[in-house]
């Protein structure tokens, strides 16, 4: 089910030079799983902006977004008590009801946020995930402490090696000889492709696509999977590795 409503900004702060964290207050009853997203109406823009939910409780939503274009630039200027029109409860989200003992949660850059509520849910389910976060440079790192405060082991890669493993998230997995029986991932498409082709276990990957509506009406974001055409906004954004043709 979906919900459209006005949400009041509680806080809107930069975490890095381009990454912002926004907390909104409002009804969250239609958010049912980590990895779902919201569609935000931006004044003077025709299409809403899809942003993944980083965290939520019964009356607040945390979004972490990267300032890329005019829509997200506008969002970064908003102040507490400003309101935004949101569609919530969009997408399938991650399925945590999977037999697993040691999952990896692998995020690249602004793909990391939806893994936070996922990690929270898994720890509630008494599963302790290992978090692997990939960044380009040290000054882009965010949310390390937040994940650690959930009791998770957090491993980091940076392209220049200034923090953690030098290279990519896949180098972290190789260098640390990690044992795992499942994985969840969100990040840039090249990263997801490599994970699909190199990790031996089943896993769930959250994809990104340009969207029209965000709720399954326009077929603007359809991708071809092994079981036919699927809408990233409706049957996704989370897909099983075994179903993807990456």
């Amino acid at each position: 089910m979906f919900k459209k409503g006005l949400y009041t900004i509680v806080s809107n702060q930069p975490l890095t030079k381009t990454i912002y964290k926004m907390v909104l207050q409002g009804d969250t009853c239609y958010i049912t799983a980590p990895g779902q997203f919201v569609e935000i109406e931006i004044p003077n823009k025709f299409l809403r902006r899809p942003i993944s939910v980083c965290d939520y409780d019964k009356d607040s939503i945390t979004l972490i977004y990267k300032v890329i274009g005019e829509g997200t630039s506008f969002m970064s200027t908003l102040l507490p008590n400003n309101t935004l029109d949101l569609l919530t409860g969009l997408g399938n989200g991650f399925n945590t009801d999977i037999p697993q003992k040691q999952p990896l949660l692998i995020g690249g850059g602004v793909g990391i946020p939806p893994l936070f509520s996922l990690a929270k849910q898994l720890t509630i389910n008494k599963i302790q995930p290992t978090i692997i976060m990939g960044f380009n440079y040290a000054d882009e790192i965010f949310y390390r402490k937040e994940f650690e405060s959930l009791g998770c082991n957090v491993l980091i890669s940076t392209l220049d090696g200034s923090v953690g493993t030098k290279g990519y998230v896949t180098d972290v997995i190789q260098n640390n000889q990690l044992t795992y029986d499942y994985f969840y991932a969100c990040g840039p498409l090249p990263m997801l492709k490599v994970l699909c082709h190199t990790l031996p276990t089943e896993g769930q990957l959250s994809l990104e696509e340009r969207m029209g509506c965000g709720f399954g009406a326009c077929m603007g974001c359809s991708i071809e999977t092994k079981s036919g055409m699927k809408r990233v906004c409706k049957e996704g954004p989370v897909f099983l590795k075994s179903d993807l043709k990456l």
Binding site: F46, L47, E209, R210, G212, G220, C221, S222, E224, M229
Partner: peptide, 12 residues
Amino acid sequence: SGNPTPRIAECT
């Protein structure tokens, strides 16, 4: 199955 993505572009 339709056209390849991206299939959507925003305009004024």
